[in-house]
Write a protein that binds this DNA or RNA. Structure first.
Length: 267
DNA sequence: GTGCTTGTTGGCCA
DNA sequence: GTGGCCAACAAGCA
């Protein structure tokens, strides 16, 4: 479930490998879609011998930096259902384990069963564009209420559900987080972005930050979201609103399956 | 077989 | 040029 919190959790899984060199890169199917913008050969040649020096996540994007000067950048995106794992040193890749990074004590695994993810690579001075151009993370000071309000004004005809999925402004928000935010704020998911006044936009901004922060906290201790969240009901058949117990509705809004409470989020 | 799925991108059109 | 919509991408599951 790679949205913001799951991505950060996956990134931290590989922290155990910090400071130790890669001994081998195993890519059994270089033609697979996740490598579509990558020079696979460069990856295989350049990573061995280099220590994992640092890592960071921004929204749904992760970067792992290698080398004494952190000059080798490996970007990973988990797509729809990708994941990172840590396996024993001699681990053999399973069907969709597209990339193995071996170290003396372990094997780091990049898995993506649907091939919607992406692997990026850069070596050199400075920061690669695919990293520097990412929008400011939701939980930083650069993610402002004014920025949200301006964006809603610009996207005035788009439904709120679609707007929240736009990574250029809401990095890391995915389908379930968008529904959770709209349920809590609350707004009907089909509400045109332009119909929110500045006070509404401020409330949406605060809710985006709140849900993002709570998702990260929750995933790091319990791995599971409380029953008080819409999330716990949204995939059930005949799910009910955790707040008012009304039967939840589902429809395609903004091109994605959307779940909401008709009583708490009236149109 | 059909219809669904937690994401992104490029093409089309207003 | 910008904004909005949608099909396509690939695989697995019910």
């Amino acid at each position: 479930m790679p949205e913001l919190a799951e991505v950060e959790h996956a990134r931290q899984l590989w922290d155990v490998a910090l400071g130790e060199p890669i001994t081998e890169v195993v890519i059994s199917r270089p033609a697979v879609r996740v490598f579509r913008t990558l020079d696979v050969l460069a990856l295989r040649e350049r990573l061995p011998g280099q220590p994992l020096a640092a890592s960071e996540s921004r929204g749904k994007q992760m970067v792992f930096r290698f080398g004494q000067k952190r000059e080798i950048w490996l970007g990973l995106h988990l797509g729809m259902e990708g994941d990172l794992r840590v396996e024993p040193p001699g681990f053999t890749a399973g069907k969709h384990d597209h990339m193995l990074l071996r170290q003396a004590k372990r094997t780091l695994v990049f898995y993506d069963g649907r091939h919607f993810g992406r692997v990026l690579f850069y070596e050199g001075d400075g920061t690669p564009g695919w990293w520097s151009k990412l929008a400011p993370s939701i939980l930083t000071k650069e993610f402002t209420a004014k920025g949200v309000n301006d964006f809603l004004t610009r996207r005035k005809r788009a439904p709120l559900k679609a707007v929240l999925l736009m990574q250029e402004r809401f990095p890391g928000i995915g389908n379930w987080m968008a529904d959770e935010i709209l349920w809590r704020a609350p707004f009907h998911p089909a509400t045109p972005a332009g119909s929110l006044d500045p006070a509404d936009a401020n409330r949406l901004w605060r809710t985006v930050r709140h849900v993002s922060r709570r998702a990260i906290e929750t995933i790091s201790d319990t791995w599971g979201y409380p029953d008080s969240w819409l999330f716990s009901q949204r995939w059930k058949k005949g799910g009910h609103c955790p707040r008012c117990n009304a039967k939840l509705e589902k429809a395609e809004i903004g091109g994605r399956t959307t779940c909401w409470c008709p009583k708490c989020q009236p149109n």
